[in-house]
């Protein structure tokens, strides 16, 4: 492509968002963490929030998220991002505080912290990346793993009699009075990615308006640990995850509709 030159009459209609650092990420090829990052960055850019947003990164594949965003950021202990974000938000109530968490972080070790952050109506926004597996540690079973799903710690497939059924966090957190906006979207194709972006925009607007807790769950792929190609992994989301994790808005407080 080095030889190609852009005709001058062409206009840039899409480029990397400013809230993303101009840097290489450690994510595997085709991993939709990158898509989730880009959507969050685009939403922050579009709402003009970059200079007052503080990102709380999790433990998991997104452990270096603070390096990938051009935002003030900090790195929480595993599962504790909602508690850390609570500390940041309570200290600086006029800032936008975002946690970015995977399913091991949010649904397993940090289940207590996320539940209580929602319960308190903590005015933070959570981007919850659900890929039904522990990515960083090499593909172990998560509370979100599907029944029968083979992982390195459920080599014969998740046995629900032994380990329970997938935990549906959006449905659970939507029950909290403090939740103003809880939605599940998927990143498996461009149309759904666009819907996911809109949901993230809504979540940030909810926080800006001080309406309460907001979370967008994003069904995501993990090609490496699912042992699929990036393209097959997106199809796997559609075929296997969507029936267990239906997309939709699980909580939209009345005030959110007026935004």
């Amino acid at each position: 492509m080095e030889t190609m030159t852009a005709p001058l009459e062409l206009q840039t209609v899409y480029q990397r968002p400013n809230a993303l650092e101009d840097t290489y990420t450690n994510y595997c090829p085709g991993c939709t963490h990158g898509v989730a990052h880009r959507l969050l960055a685009e939403a922050i850019d579009e709402l003009g929030l970059r200079d007052r947003t503080i990102l709380v990164a999790p433990v998991g594949c997104a452990v270096f998220a603070y390096e990938y965003f051009d935002l003030d950021g900090c790195e929480a202990a595993h599962g504790r991002a909602p508690a850390m974000a609570t500390g940041v938000k309570r200290a600086l109530p006029d800032r936008i505080v975002v946690t970015y968490q995977g399913d091991g972080d949010l649904a397993s070790i940090g289940a207590g912290e996320i539940l209580h952050a929602a319960g308190r109506g903590e005015k933070i926004s959570v981007v919850f990346v659900n890929n039904a597996i522990y990515g960083m540690t090499g593909g172990q079973m998560a509370p979100t793993s599907l029944p029968g799903q083979k992982t390195s710690s459920s080599p014969k497939g998740r046995d629900v009699a032994m380990t329970g059924n997938p935990m549906r966090m959006s449905e659970l957190l939507a029950q909290m009075e403090g939740s103003a906006y809880v939605a599940r979207r998927s990143l498996h194709d461009p149309a759904n990615i666009r819907k996911a972006k809109k949901a993230i925009l809504t979540a940030l607007k909810v926080q800006e308006a001080g309406l309460g807790f907001s979370m967008v769950e994003l069904l995501s792929s993990c090609p490496t640990n699912w042992k699929l190609t990036p393209s097959e992994a997106l199809k796997w989301i559609e075929t296997n995850m969507l029936p267990i994790y239906p997309l939709g808005d699980y909580k939209v407080a009345d005030a959110v509709r007026d935004l």
Binding site: Q11, V13, Q15, R16, P190
Partner: peptide
């Protein structure tokens, strides 16, 4: 929109 590495710039008339 689908690029996970945000490495595509799009130009159009």
């Amino acid at each position: 929109v689908i690029c996970p590495d945000a490495c595509i710039t799009v130009l159009r008339e």
